[in-house]
Every structure is written in structure tokens, then in C-alpha cells.
Design a protein around this nucleic acid. Structure first.
Lengths: 128, 128
DNA sequence: GCAACATACCTCGTAATGCAATGTATATGG
DNA sequence: CCATATACATTGCATTACGAGGTATGTTGC
């Protein structure tokens, strides 16, 4: 029947999370960095760099933060610093918390899937 | 001095593998699917779908296979099928094997990093 | 006061990439 | 010979990562 071509029964739009993850992994990381409380932009970058060796450029992070805020997953507030430029602190909203949980679960599926796939590759790295 | 802007000391170009992984994850999966021996295009898609719940569209896979072949990581050969259209079987080259190993290690770093980040998120999913 | 510097946020342009849609080739069955 | 099934391939669009460049604010040295 009609259904011919490019369609594994992936499920349409609602939760193509597995697909969104290959992308959204960075958004997920940004959300996750705020789990312990509010951080400001550069701080998020430094946090991810040190905690998970995810090195993101500012030109990557700021657009992500804006997107997440536009989606209502984050809020932001300006805070004066003792010195220098004021800082924009980001916090998770309730929606952000829920979304992060969903993404984290999807991430586990995705990454366990790949791990399974790579298992043979990393096995006994000698005879070959 | 000059070094002001967008530069965490990421290491320049040679092996921004962590960066390449967020992308290249799909290329890695394609390579990994061939670890056990040659497969043809659609077969790779089905294999990934079943073994790791990675649902890739044909329009995604064929370009990837072409890229990998152009890089010398794969070879391909036409094989007549008993029925229908002939199949193009892909196999890993030595270079492909080595690259896959590198990617697999980088993947482990990357994914362990994210796992660490998400640990608190998935903890004790009740009181909240 | 005013450079020079440091910190912080923001944005534009480009290249890459995932994918739906669409097309072609080959064979089988009614 | 037309509909169907399998398989490979390409084009166009939307999204994205990120380098480069820019603006804002405050400090320190002269």
C-alpha cells in the first residue's frame, strides 16, 4: 500500500526524541548543567568543559540558551557582579525539569544502544 | 592579549573528536554495523534499527555510506540478489577498522561525560 | 581622565548534516 | 503489462555548530 518509501515506523513527530538527541545532546547538557542551581552563561560553558569534557563555544551556547528560554524551559535574570559586566543567570523551570528527565531517559536508550553496538569493537584489543 | 574571544583551549583541528562525535555518531554506527561482516544498504538500516533502536532514513544512510567510502573507510561491491534489485555490499577497510576503534574510544569519553552529568537528574525519581 | 585589559553577553555568515520527498533500476506475480 | 516489492540514489529544505567579530561594564595603571 501507499506507505512505500522512506518510513521506518518511527512515530511521527511527538517523540522523535531518539532523533532529536543526536542533535539536542547539547541542549540536554545545557539543561543538565543547571540541575544544581542557577548558573550564568560563561559559567555553564566552563562547567560543561570541566565536568564532562564538553567544550562548547560561546557562539554555540548563547543561541542554545535563547532557544531553551524561548521554549519556556529556562528563565533568566540579570545579576550585578562585584566586578565587570553583569551576568545573566539561567534556571530550570518546571517544564525544563520535566523535559530534562525525558531527554535523560532517551539518552540512556540511545547511548546504551550504541554501547551495545560498539561492544565487539572494543573487545580484547590485541589479536588483529 | 589577542587570544580574547571564542577559545577554550580545545586543541585546534587535528582531533576534535569529541566535537565530531556529536555529529559523527551516525557514521560511527554505520561503521560499527559492519564489524561482523559485509552488509548492504537497507540491511545496515535494519540492523541499526533492531540492534540499537537507531532509526535512520535512507536519505540519511546513503550519503553517509558514500562519504565513508570516499574517505577510504569502506569498500563496496555489487552482488546479484536471487530476486529483485542487485545489492551493494559494504565492508570495512583496515583504515575503517582503525578509525572505528578511535571513534569508539572517543564515544566512551563523551558518553561517560554526559552520563556523569545526568546522574543527578535520574536519581531517585520520586520526591519532587 | 583615559588607555588597556578583563569579563560577559550577543549575532552574523558559512558549512555541514539529517531527512522527507522523489526518482530510477530490477525482478516477480496476477 | 501493470502493480508490487526491493534496493539504491539525489535533491532541496530546515536546522545547527561555531568562528569571527561586536557591544557593554568595570578595574587598574599612568
Amino acid at each position: 500500500m501507499g506507505l512505500s518509501k522512506t518510513e521506518l515506523p518511527t512515530g511521527d513527530a511527538p517523540d522523535r526524541w531518539e532523533a532529536q538527541l543526536r542533535k539536542g545532546a547539547l541542549e540536554m547538557a545545557a539543561l543538565a548543567s543547571l540541575w544544581g542551581g542557577r548558573l550564568y552563561g560563561l559559567e555553564i560553558i566552563r562547567f560543561l568543559d570541566s565536568q564532562s569534557s564538553l567544550a562548547l563555544a560561546e557562539g554555540t551556547m548563547y543561541p542554545i540558551l535563547n532557544r531553551l528560554k524561548a521554549e519556556g524551559l529556562l528563565t533568566s535574570e540579570w545579576v550585578e557582579a562585584e566586578a565587570g559586566h553583569p551576568r545573566k543567570y539561567y534556571s530550570l523551570t518546571q517544564a525544563g525539569i520535566q523535559r530534562l528527565r525525558l531527554m535523560a531517559e532517551a539518552w540512556n536508550n540511545f547511548s546504551r544502544g550504541l554501547d551495545r553496538l560498539l561492544e565487539p569493537v572494543l573487545e580484547k584489543q590485541e589479536a588483529r
